[in-house]
């Protein structure tokens, strides 16, 4: 009973902190404060994933949910003027609150009623029974790259389309000024280490928590660090190489799927003996693509134009906030 109680205390602490941070992040007066609270929310959420036995998601959340989204929102907070809220709560606001609270009650009731049903068949049993045939032993990776490879291919296509949208909207946000010596030194020491860890996560994904998403996100984080320390394009290559990188994931995925069809197998139906190597090939290309796409999304445009934008209004605004970022 003793052990159970300490778990319950952890649960209550985590849940109340999550709810409080989410609420204060949305209610905060200052935009930058809202984003800082959101980053804290993301980190606690990563802890929650560990508590719920989802280490793969914890890695992705810490890198993307808290890290990259936080950096993106913080950069955006500096160039968005915040209209002062009127303080008066309108009738529409009251209706909105009541409707969303009502929706929460209905959803909560459906959830409790559903999990109480005794269910006979679950996909999980099928996954565990067939994981031997997928070429990897991490069940999450087996679902992502084998059982539901189609989903993951389309998801990479969604990423590609989103970043094409971002690229079409204009030049990248301008870079930041020269950093202090401590940050430069830190970046020089950290970036090679991050690249190494990213390679490890890619390799480990086959049998342990990790995989293309976590590895790609970490690689993109190295690019964000480079950008914050004066490398305007975050280490992304120019033009042709950049374009090749962002389509590499979808291209290799499709090439593998189509060659399997030529060999007389279903689309993305990996033969057992080859599955491991094919998945590693796809994941390697996906890692590079995901890193380039996430980083280009953070730069908010084509890396080529980032340097040309310096004189603009946006740059001065961004530059001013860099001071705040350094203080943090």
């Amino acid at each position: 009973m003793e052990a159970l109680t300490s778990w319950q205390i952890l649960d209550l602490l985590l849940i109340s902190a999550l709810l409080a941070l989410a609420w204060t992040a949305m209610a905060a007066k200052d935009l930058r404060r809202a984003v800082a609270l959101f980053i804290a929310f993301g980190l606690l959420l990563a802890l929650t994933w560990v508590r719920l036995r989802a280490p793969d998601i914890a890695l992705a959340e810490a890198a993307i949910g808290a890290g990259l989204t936080g950096a993106l929102l913080l950069a955006a907070a500096s160039d968005e003027p915040d209209p002062v809220p009127s303080g008066r709560i309108s009738a529409a606001g009251v209706v909105l609150t009541v409707v969303s609270a009502g929706l929460a009650v209905v959803l909560g009731w459906v959830f409790v009623a559903t999990v109480q049903q005794a269910d006979s068949t679950r996909l999980a049993e099928e996954v565990f029974a067939n994981v031997e045939t997928t070429g990897v032993s991490n069940p999450v990776t087996s679902v992502l790259l084998n059982f539901r490879a189609y989903d993951t291919l389309l998801e990479l296509a969604v990423l590609l389309i989103a970043v094409l949208g971002v690229l079409a909207l204009g030049p990248a946000r301008a870079g930041y000024g020269a950093p202090g010596p401590v940050l430069s030194l830190l970046a020089r020491r950290l970036v090679p280490l991050i690249i190494l860890v990213s390679g490890y996560l890619l390799w480990a994904g086959a049998h342990a928590p990790g995989g293309a998403f976590q590895a790609g996100a970490l690689l993109a984080a190295a690019g964000v660090l480079l950008r914050l320390t004066g490398t305007t394009n975050g280490g992304l290559p120019g033009d042709g190489a950049f374009r090749t990188l962002i389509v590499a994931g979808v291209a290799v995925f499709l090439a593998v799927g189509l060659s399997l069809m030529l060999a007389g197998r279903p689309f993305l139906g990996f033969p057992v003996a080859w599955a491991g190597s094919l998945i590693l090939a796809i994941e390697t290309a996906a890692t590079l693509s995901i890193a380039a796409i996430l980083l280009a999304a953070f730069l908010a445009g084509d890396p080529k134009h980032a340097a040309a934008n310096r004189g603009s209004k946006t740059w001065q605004r961004t530059h001013k906030t860099q001071g705040h970022a350094n203080e943090l």
Partner: peptide, 13 residues
């Protein structure tokens, strides 16, 4: 896992 990555790209867009 895929949702987290899609959420990021939608946020950026």
């Amino acid at each position: 896992l895929t949702g987290i990555v899609v959420a990021f790209s939608a946020t950026a867009l």
